[in-house]
Design a protein around this nucleic acid. Structure first.
Lengths: 223, 223
DNA sequence: GGCCCTATCCTGGTATACCAAATATAGAGA
DNA sequence: TCTCTATATTTGGTATACCAGGATAGGGCC
């Protein structure tokens, strides 16, 4: 899940990760202008990887770049997060719908196995494994959807959301409920019921959405 | 719609456009490796803008870049196109659903006006205006959805699909049918019927999808 | 004769220098 | 004093040179 875990090779990628963290953490406030030379100096590198990193962040939607203008940090308000979750829900729902139609028996079995693993993980109190398993569960559904493009996009979106998700899941330990929802999705997939699979998945992802709404109400006035 | 029309400023952006065209046109075959120096020489520029362009194309999903590896042209088979349309349909459907819930009366009126414009455009036989108007119709719905992220993503996706769309719409002149479908979407939005709006929109976009299926059957064996 | 190891080349990643556009600033004119 | 303009400075875009990692080919070993 961690994009920049250890096996980093290029400075640009590492920079992108660092800057993303800073933006998400709010150390770089929205609207702030990012000077390439300044960043380069701060990290002790040249401007070249900084540019690549900024380009990457721009494609991730974290900064905005216009020709001949400084890159500016985008408004990372929680509303935008909710919007991203809304899109994620739609895409995951599509994946579930497609998977219900096209998923192979082997993949379905693998999915059931992951589902059981998650159950064990919860029962044995190993919440640190949850994230990875949860990702695998969804990942298998993307694969089963037989739509490579969708898989990529949803992967990308999840990647962009991952910092928030971790924060979110840490805060409200909803693993049990999530597991139940997984169970319902799995059942729908087994039945090959496209509509129900899509609906359950949408609901499942949107639950996180509702948490965000809750959090927004909690400490609003960020964005 | 034309991303690179006239007001080009940076070489990198122009390069990205040219390379995208070549890839779409098949002059750069899928799987082909793109040597940065060679491309730079071919276009008479340095490697720097080539790198930026390649990065751009990578984020557009047209090429694949791995560290220390040459960028390779992605398999741009028609199946992938279908997959992109599938995702587009899902996103547009979400937009319509949100729009039915949140769209302002003013935007709805604007939408109706565009719809009429398209009707006139068809009646008076000005198919060259169709693309722009059609885009506006959908664009207003994105705006009405009140989800900036969704709007950006769907915009991006449409941009990536635009070459195919033009080719597609030129080939099979389905403007009339499309206009009727627009009418149904508009009606659903006016009624504030989320589910129907989403469904009509999904169907509408997926119609293009079906054309692609047809085309694929016609001259398969590309990807 | 085939497989593995190594050396060389090739290519992408990075650093630095230069150029041009955009903005800030200061001065002159109204 | 305000505004318009011209200039200076800032800063992103581009070019070039250098470095390091991966690929391939050749030779040595089994």
């Amino acid at each position: 899940m961690d994009v920049n875990s250890g096996r980093e090779l290029t400075i640009a990628a590492r920079l992108a990760g660092s800057l993303e963290e800073e933006i998400v953490a709010g150390q770089l406030s929205p609207g702030q202008q990012l000077d390439e030379r300044q960043i380069a100096e701060r990290f002790g590198v040249s401007r070249t990887p900084v540019r690549e990193a900024l380009r990457q962040l721009a494609s991730a939607g974290l900064v905005e770049m216009r020709p001949r203008r400084k890159a500016v940090v985008r408004r990372l308000d929680k509303q935008r997060m909710v919007q991203m979750f809304e899109v994620l829900a739609s895409l995951e729902s599509l994946a579930a719908e497609c998977a219900a139609r096209r998923m192979s028996a082997a993949l379905l079995a693998a999915l059931a196995e992951i589902h059981d693993d998650i159950g064990r993980c919860i029962a044995e109190g190993r919440p640190e494994d949850y994230d990875a398993l949860n990702y695998q569960f969804h990942r298998i559904i993307y694969d089963g959807a037989g739509n490579g493009y969708l898989s990529e996009q949803v992967d990308l979106l999840r990647q962009h959301l991952s910092p928030y998700r971790r924060w979110l899941l840490q805060k409200m330990n909803r693993m049990r409920q999530s597991h139940e929802e997984h169970g319902r999705i799995l059942a729908a997939l087994k039945d090959g019921d496209e509509a129900r699979a899509a609906d359950e998945m949408r609901r499942h992802v949107r639950d996180d959405d509702r948490f965000l709404d809750f959090l927004m109400a909690q400490d609003s006035g960020d964005g």
